[in-house]
Simulated assay, not measured.
Amino acid sequence: MTSRNEIKKLIITFLRKWLFPDFTNKVTWAVVTVGCAILVTPTPFKLIFYNWLVDSFNLNSGNHFTLAELTADSADYVWGGVLVVGALFHNIGYRYFLHAAAVAEERKLDRQRYADLVLFNEFKSAFPSNSASVRLLEEHDFGNSYPGDSTSHIERFVVDWNNAEHQFLDSAIEKKRQELWACCNNFLNTLASHSGPITASPFFSAIPDMYRGDWDWPDFVSERVKELNTKASECFTCHQEFIALSKNRLKC
Rank of each mutant, 00 (worst) to 15 (best):
K124S: 10
D149W: 11
N121C: 04
P147A: 13
N144H: 15
V158Q: 08
S152G: 05
G143S: 08
L136H: 14
Q167E: 11
V134L: 07
D149K: 07
S150K: 03
W161M: 05
S150H: 11
G143I: 03
F123T: 05
A132M: 09
T151R: 07
H140Y: 02
H140G: 02
L169M: 15
D149G: 09
F127L: 11
F168C: 08
I154L: 15
F142A: 03
E138N: 14
Y146H: 13
E165A: 06
E139S: 12
S131Q: 01
S145N: 13
E139N: 14
D160G: 10
S131E: 00
F168G: 02
H153N: 11
E138Q: 08
Q167H: 10
F123K: 04
N162M: 05
S133F: 00
R135M: 09
S131A: 08
R156K: 10
S133Y: 03
W161F: 01
A164E: 12
E155C: 01
S125Q: 13
S131F: 00
E155T: 08
Q167N: 05
N163Y: 09
A164S: 13
L136W: 15
R135T: 08
E165S: 14
N130G: 10
D170S: 12
Y146N: 09
R135Q: 12
S133H: 00
A132N: 05
H166C: 15
F168E: 01
F123I: 05
N144E: 15
F123M: 07
S131R: 03
D170M: 03
S145R: 14
E122H: 12
N121R: 08
I154G: 02
V158F: 03
S133D: 05
I154Y: 06
S129M: 02
K124H: 01
V159Q: 15
D160I: 06
Y146S: 13
F142D: 04
K124Y: 00
S125L: 09
N163K: 12
T151H: 05
F123A: 00
N130E: 15
L169Y: 14
F142E: 01
D170H: 04
